[in-house]
Design a protein around this nucleic acid. Structure first.
Length: 421
DNA sequence: TCTGGGGTCCTAGGACCC
DNA sequence: TCTGGGGTCCTAGGACCC
């Protein structure tokens, strides 16, 4: 048995946590650069604001309806997420953290519906008591069924936010009224293709012949169908797999035209990507740099390009990658464009000591001094982000992203603690 | 004027090996 | 007349997730 625990309107709920005055106010949270709406409180949902809606298009309706707007504050959300996950972990035998606001739990050994339902309610009330965040809990024989149950828990308030999906008749009833596009693993594209084939509901979908489903689509969709029929294809991953790539990219607050600004931005992203790399205790051999103009500006020409390079042996040294990144951005920069976004991708990872040199490779230099320097830089920046940085990252950063409406980092900065009067 | 960021997995096809 | 079979590795592209 699996449970899927999902925080309700997570980012919006985090913002409300320290603002009791906003308890019944509609709240939306914007993506990086204050671009799109990425989270909505239930009041904002009721007003019809959509996920992914561009802020500038919604702004007039936001003002008119007295909606409170926040820039995203990931430092806050990550800390609240950690508290939620730790609480769930203290109640259930094992969990897999699936995203910042979701976790699967293993409920093996719980025999009857009543016990499962009690467990779901216990998770819900404990998380709320410890963190102030409300969650929905869906329980089923497979992960995909737990997801479906969770969807029902959110959709139907009468459930109280906890749904146990084990009873055959109940499963059929739910599947007959749920569109196939709601299923975990069926996105926009597949959903349209399936509807075109006459498969509208989840129930239609599980009646379809498994073999032909695999032939026409892929093994991925076959597994999804099997999971919905109660055959578990996915287990609980308690230890997160080691990353295979690290990406750091941002849209700019203002368009960039100058090469030195673009190079500064790329250097900043490179430094951040290397920091993440070291926190994974990995080294990378490849780096890709990309930049592009806005795909939405139809009055100006579109340009997008990328370039990669390979080190002769893997590294986790920021200076090594900064050098590469600078060469790469010089290669793809063209002066006549207004750049909207750039990014850096690290790949080809090796754990320490696992890289195989070839007969004619030079022995890598002794890097222990560099390692010490990098770990010191990481330590200092952990205490206070941006405390130490490379000069090529720039100082004034005129291209930095917009976050005009960011709330205090209430739980992770001494000077931003909430004040009670 | 203004449209996010960071990931994973699978498949098909090409290059190459014996 | 007759033109193999079996395999790996890599990459690009497409789908999905939050």
């Amino acid at each position: 048995m699996f449970a899927l625990i999902d925080c309700n309107n997570f980012y919006a709920s985090c913002e409300k946590l320290f603002r009791p005055d906003l308890a019944h106010t509609p709240v939306v949270v914007l993506s990086n650069n204050d671009g799109c709406i990425v989270a909505r409180s239930k009041e904002a949902k009721a007003l019809g604001f959509k996920m992914g809606e561009p802020y500038f298009q919604a702004k007039e309706r936001i003002d008119r309806n007295g909606v409170m707007v926040f820039s995203s504050n990931y430092e806050l959300y990550a800390d609240i997420s950690r508290r939620v996950m730790e609480t769930i972990e203290s109640v259930v035998p094992a969990i897999e953290i699936y995203s910042i606001d979701e976790a699967f739990a293993d409920l093996r050994g719980f025999s009857d519906d009543h016990a499962l339902s009690q467990m779901g309610k216990l998770i819900q009330s404990t998380v709320f008591k410890h963190t102030g965040i409300s969650v929905g809990v869906g329980i089923g024989a497979t992960k995909t069924l737990a997801k479906l149950a969770n969807h029902a828990a959110k959709q139907y308030p009468k459930t109280g936010g906890v749904v146990v999906l084990t009873d055959k008749a109940r499963i059929e009833k739910l599947m007959r009224i749920t569109e196939v596009g709601e299923v975990w693993g069926v996105g926009r594209r597949l959903s349209r293709q399936l509807t075109d084939m006459g498969i509208q509901t989840v129930w239609d979908f599980i009646q379809h012949d498994t073999g032909s489903l695999r032939k026409q689509f892929s093994v991925v969709l076959e597994r999804t169908q099997r999971e919905l029929k109660g055959q578990a294809c996915f287990g609980l991953d308690e230890t997160p797999a080691t990353k295979q790539q690290i990406v750091c990219s941002r849209s700019f607050g203002d368009r960039i035209t100058q090469l030195d600004h673009l190079a500064q931005a790329v250097a900043t992203y490179t430094a951040r990507a290397c920091e993440k790399l070291r926190s994974e205790a990995m080294s990378a051999q490849s780096i890709t740099v990309f930049c592009r103009t806005s795909p939405f500006a139809d009055k100006e020409p579109y340009y997008s390009n990328q370039a990669s390079s390979q080190l002769s042996y893997p590294s986790d040294d920021t200076a090594v990658f900064l050098h590469q990144a600078n060469e790469l951005i010089q290669r793809i920069y063209k002066p006549q464009f207004r750049y909207a976004k750039a990014g850096v991708m690290l790949s080809n990872f090796y754990a320490p000591g696992t890289f195989q040199l070839s007969l004619f490779d030079e022995q890598p230099k002794d890097e222990s001094k560099r390692k010490g320097l990098m770990s010191l830089v990481d330590q200092l920046n952990k205490q206070h982000k941006g405390q130490v940085f490379f000069g090529c990252e720039g100082i004034s950063k005129p291209w930095a992203m917009k976050r005009d409406k960011v709330s205090p980092r209430y739980t992770t900065r001494w000077d931003e603690l909430p004040v009670v009067r």
